[in-house]
Design a protein around this nucleic acid. Structure first.
Lengths: 337, 337
DNA sequence: CTGTTAGCGCTTTCAA
DNA sequence: TTGAAAGCGCTAACAG
């Protein structure tokens, strides 16, 4: 049987209150007393029962992390960063993976985080008002990664700006007929980037006086196959594009495959730009927009913890920079393959 | 303020004990009483405080999931599967990501799961005796995914057999000089596959009467770059291999890149086989060994929960099958690119 | 600086 | 089938 606080108190010859104070590093404990307690605790290999502590204190030392997927690059990176930051701060990480539309509905219906977390972190989910309200009912601070909303703490990149940079790169190369492969914003599991990246695409075209052509904007799943199918539709156009901006690297991979299967070359016949700087982007020689995922994760976690601790007053929105990485999929000279 | 069990009891006109029983679906509650309680609870939007319940019952309804990485394909898939299974069973998932050797030491030193989980799931970590002992001190069932140990519950694939199939495929194609790109088993973060896959490689060579050549076995990180560097060393050999077996798809990607950069063709000059059937393997046209990751995750989770619940007696070792997937990196005719 | 004591909100005997 | 009451192992006033 594991030792309890009473065992430690007895061994150290003090009260359980003193044990509690000493172990938590509270002030107003004599150094000698603290040492005795620490020694006794070490001897008994004692750790406080988190549940008893949580029940008594009301603090859970846990944050709920909500992601739509864990097995996609972006979210895996996010979890990695958040986990490290939480662990260092002594917080537990309760993971909620929505998985699909049904899982998402169930989640917001049941709100399984109720009464068990001190803070919630939402990663790149498009939330409707009812969902924001459900989150608010948790009455604990909520941090947003990859999206923003007035009154909420958030960290993100500027997707519009990133997409603009991607498409500007193509227009600067002389392309004028540029296809867009984007996420389906009607998908119940859609996350935030698609809307913004599309706006950036249109903005960059407008800068060079090109009117948006609806036929050049095709939507699909944020996956390799989704990108491949979308690219096929673009290539089948009577007047196909000379360049493609894919809203994610994975979609871009599918596009590269589709272009090659059509017997065309990248970038000579079709130039391709992705978004993310996925771990395999260099390998695929893909020009892309790098976004600092780990930095976003660390930033939002640190600030969320600060809010949960009562520091930091008003919720701010932090925007981290993106960066164009030119590789062989748009410029043979920049090829790393 | 959230409703407590007393509020529900008052509204339903019963004692808190009855509320507790009714809400948990215990027998010996009159149907009419149960209905009244359920109605009252719904009206107050009541959910039990998990910490109070855990403190009182001793059950945590939580399982700790320990992974060396979350941002690698295999582990992301594992977490995905485990999370779904746990959520369905009403369990919380506490995630522990070791990250690096230091994080790993800290983990086994502090044992942060102490007193907070009903079961532990370890994914593909090579554990030493001291670490197994530390896990045992948790005095809760431990499930192993991707490794086995007498006395422990486990689910895995047969890495030896999978690697044999990979290398047999190469020998059946006529290759005799086959390089191995493997994980460094001395890496403190090494996981289980490397040792076994190397054995399978040697076995398959022995089957065709080829003696192992130490120069053909090179080690590195389980990453794209690790595979690339290892392949470079193989290609620099006086008598380079005509085929390469990489112990993971990511290492195989690096090898493909290295071969191409050396001005050679895949598979004509160097055939390459990977292991995993990573999500991008089809895209890379890589021949590989498919392993059922989600199935492993679901299997071990279900059985671990059964043990934690007191069902299922003795810990068994379940081995799931692997499958050779032939693509263009070994056979031009099978190319999907 | 330290001890006493009253809970935190449940679950679980035990009795009725 | 239900209720009373005793904890579960801590934290947090409060008193000294």
């Amino acid at each position: 049987m594991a030792a309890s606080i009473e065992d430690v108190a007895r061994l150290a010859g003090v009260s359980i209150a003193t044990v509690s104070r000493a172990l938590r590093g509270l002030p107003d404990v004599a150094a000698a007393t603290r040492d005795r307690v620490l020694t006794a605790a070490a001897e008994l290999d004692y750790v406080a029962s988190p549940f008893a502590a949580r029940l008594a204190s009301g603090r859970t030392a846990t944050v709920g992390v909500v992601v739509p997927f864990v097995n996609r690059w972006f979210f895996a990176e996010v979890i990695d960063g958040v986990e490290a930051a939480l662990r260092k701060a002594g917080f537990d990480l309760l993971l909620y993976n929505l998985g699909d539309a049904e899982g998402r509905d169930r989640f917001f219906d049941v709100m399984p985080m109720r009464k068990r977390v001190d803070a919630v972190l939402i990663a790149s989910l498009v939330l409707d008002d009812a969902e924001f309200e459900a989150l608010g009912a948790l009455s604990c601070p909520v941090g947003l990664l990859g999206l923003e909303r007035p009154g909420f703490l958030s960290t993100r990149i500027d997707d519009v700006c990133g997409a603009q940079a991607a498409v500007r790169h193509l227009t600067s190369l002389g392309h004028r007929r540029i296809g867009l492969i984007g996420g389906d914003t009607d998908d119940p599991m859609s996350f935030t980037p698609p809307l913004r990246r599309r706006d950036g695409y249109r903005d960059a075209l407008a800068e060079v006086g090109v009117d948006p052509d609806p036929a050049l904007e095709v939507l699909g799943y944020f996956t390799i196959d989704g990108g491949g199918e979308a690219a096929n539709r673009l290539l089948a156009l009577p007047d196909p594009p000379t360049a493609i901006f894919a809203e994610s690297d994975e979609m871009a991979y599918g596009a590269i495959r589709a272009v090659r299967r059509a017997g065309l070359r990248v970038p000579e016949d079709v130039a391709i730009v992705g978004f993310d700087d996925h771990v395999t982007a260099a390998l695929m020689d893909l020009t892309t927009i790098r976004q600092p995922v780990t930095e976003q994760a660390l930033d939002i976690t640190a600030r969320l913890l600060a809010v949960a601790a009562g520091d930091e007053a008003n919720p701010t929105d932090v925007v981290l920079p993106t960066q164009l990485i030119v590789r062989g999929s748009t410029d043979p000279a920049a090829s790393v393959a």
